[in-house]
Design a protein around this nucleic acid. Structure first.
Lengths: 75, 75
DNA sequence: ATGTGACTTATAGTCCGTG
DNA sequence: CCACGGACTATAAGTCACA
C-alpha cells in the first residue's frame, strides 16, 4: 500500500522532465502528446498506459520503469 | 528503441507469476482482474494502465516498476 | 508556461464462450 | 491450465477554451 501510483508517476515525471530541461509543452512536442495531457499525468489525474509511459520516457533518456519507481533515499 | 513494451511487460509478468506459483486464473482472482485479461497482458496484446500494473504487482510481492524492467543478464 | 472542466473517439478491461 | 475470439461497458486518449 504505497502511494497512489498515478501520483507517483506524476511526481517522477516532473522530476525527470525538469532534470532534462524540458517544459511540459516542450516534452509534449518531443513525445507526440498534448501539453494538457502531460500536465494531467504530472498532476496524477490521468491513468496512463504502458505505451504512453514509453513515449514519455524516450525523450527523457530514461527507461519507462523509472517512472514507476518509489523514491529511494540516498539517490 | 528497446523491444515493444507490451511484450516486455508480458514476459516479465509470466516470469514473476510463475515464480510466485500462480496460474493466470489464480493471479487474476488475487488481483481482481479477469483471467482473459491477464492472458492478454502476458501475450503482449494488451496495453495495461499503471493502475493495472500496480494491481498485478501486489500479489506477486514486487514493485510495479519491475514489470517494465528490461531483463538484465546476471540477475 | 501551466491547471482545469468538458468533451468525443479510441481502446482498456469484462464476460461469454471455443479448442 | 492456457490461447484466442466476439460482444459488450468503462475509462483512457486526445483536444479545446479559458483562467
Amino acid at each position: 500500500m504505497g502511494m497512489d501510483i498515478r501520483r507517483l508517476v506524476g511526481l517522477n515525471l516532473k522530476i525527470y522532465r525538469k532534470a532534462a530541461g524540458f517544459s511540459q509543452e516542450g516534452l509534449a512536442l518531443e513525445c507526440g502528446l498534448h501539453r494538457t495531457y502531460v500536465s494531467g499525468v504530472e498532476r496524477g489525474v490521468r491513468n496512463p498506459t504502458v505505451l504512453v509511459l514509453a513515449q514519455l520516457a524516450e525523450p527523457l533518456g530514461i527507461p519507462a520503469s523509472k517512472l514507476l519507481e518509489e523514491p529511494v533515499d540516498g539517490e
